[in-house]
Design a protein around this nucleic acid. Sequence first.
RNA 1: GGAGAGAUGGCCGAGUUGGCUGAAGGCGCUCGCCUGCUAAGCGAGUAUACGGCUAAUACCUGUAUCGAGGGUUCGAAUCCCUCUCUCUCCGCCA
Length: 424
Amino acid sequence: MLDAKLIRANPQVVETALRNRNLPGALDNFLELEKQRRSLLAQVEEIKKFRNQSSQEVGKLKKQGLEPEELMEKVRQAGQEIKELDEQVNVIEAEINKILLNIPNIPHDSVPIGIDDTSNLEIRRWGEPRKFDFEPLAHWDIGPNLDILDFERAAKLSGARFAVYKSGGARLERAVVNFFLDTHTGCHGYKEIFPPFMVTADCMRGTGQLPKFAEDMFKIEGRDMYMVPTAEVPLTNLYREEILEEKDLPLYMTAYTACFRAEAGSHGRDTRGIIRQHQFNKVELVKITSAETSYEELEKLTGDAERVLQLLGLPYRVVLLSSGDMGFSSAKTYDLEVWMPGYNDYKEISSCSNCEDFQARRANIRYRPASKEKIRYAHTLNGSGVAAGRTVAAILENYQQADGSVLIPEVLKPYMGGLERIEK
RNA sequence: GGAGAGAUGGCCGAGUUGGCUGAAGGCGCUCGCCUGCUAAGCGAGUAUACGGCUAAUACCUGUAUCGAGGGUUCGAAUCCCUCUCUCUCCGCCA
């Protein structure tokens, strides 16, 4: 959520930013409604002032044994007016709030302007895509061939966009998750959290999934709750409605959760394999920082996510998303794209964002600066560290052998009980 | 699922015959004083949001906020209703 005062003070700046996010005219009624709101507030507060003073007066008079009927009647009428005006204020504030909740974050100055991913900027590459002396297969062929991924039986259980992992595949998924968590807690200083997989609508509003993206999520029937689409939601909301001390910042948190996404708008995309599933596993990184340090923390967080790909020996590149390609809550996002021989291309495996105070304002996460200034909104960051399913897919494709087997990356062997390769 | 208790400021904790309580007291924190040594003592200060004023996110001022919402009343942290959450006991259960 943007600061209403900022919009009021610099409407053209915000307009421009929103145009760069393909949302012209998002502010249309906002300024007018704001004006109405302030005018009504001035009126109603004036009457409330009268009521407060008068009812105190009544109290004093009554103590003297008087019955100030006339004054009491006046206050009664004032109360009526207050009720009506409050009603109007509520309606207008609800409208303003609706607008505010649907406006995305403003891109940071360093973000390239563009309408979609064609304006994204490649920042760096790591690793060399492997040269195969045979025709490499895609993971949706490798997995079933080795009988470690079963899409047909998954469909029997749950329909499209689900997978069943079996034997070495199941263990590989688990190994990857544990390797990520161990690395981030052991080497990068994150605190491990194991949160609920279902959260309230308030949490979803706090991180920006609601109200705009309700159709992307799985809602719990009969309850005001949702399956988490990413651990970013519970981790960031851990500190909702709290005031932190600057000396305790930054907070580094990591969590494994399953993630649940309806994928409503992606019919026909990535229908094969485990790239785009309704349920997938992910280890997430979340930071809560002061306003001054969030951008250097974003670089570090991105580096932490890169580190696990490096340790796995998976070639990747880092891409800075353009204004038109960024997520709703983000001010700046780096995507990590891993090399997938089956696609002969890089595929997104992590997305690292600085949301600045956008989520903090929605979720009311604040901190008391060490300098004793006024309380401020914290900055929140999140990044995949990284998606487990896509990592497994990348391992299958990058480590496949001519005989159909798949070698286990060195760092995962301890997690695989010493297994060297998955074979039929 | 049954029975009971409770939700107050950064924290703890007063306040329930409705009014002068934005809220005692304590802790913590900040500033100052004092003390010949990391302790103690003394004094002062210390909520947030929104509005007005303003160059100001500085003053000053108004309104709101004692879990949330609604009601009664001239006036509610204090009375009534609904909801949410927490705790204790019983039952059930991975």
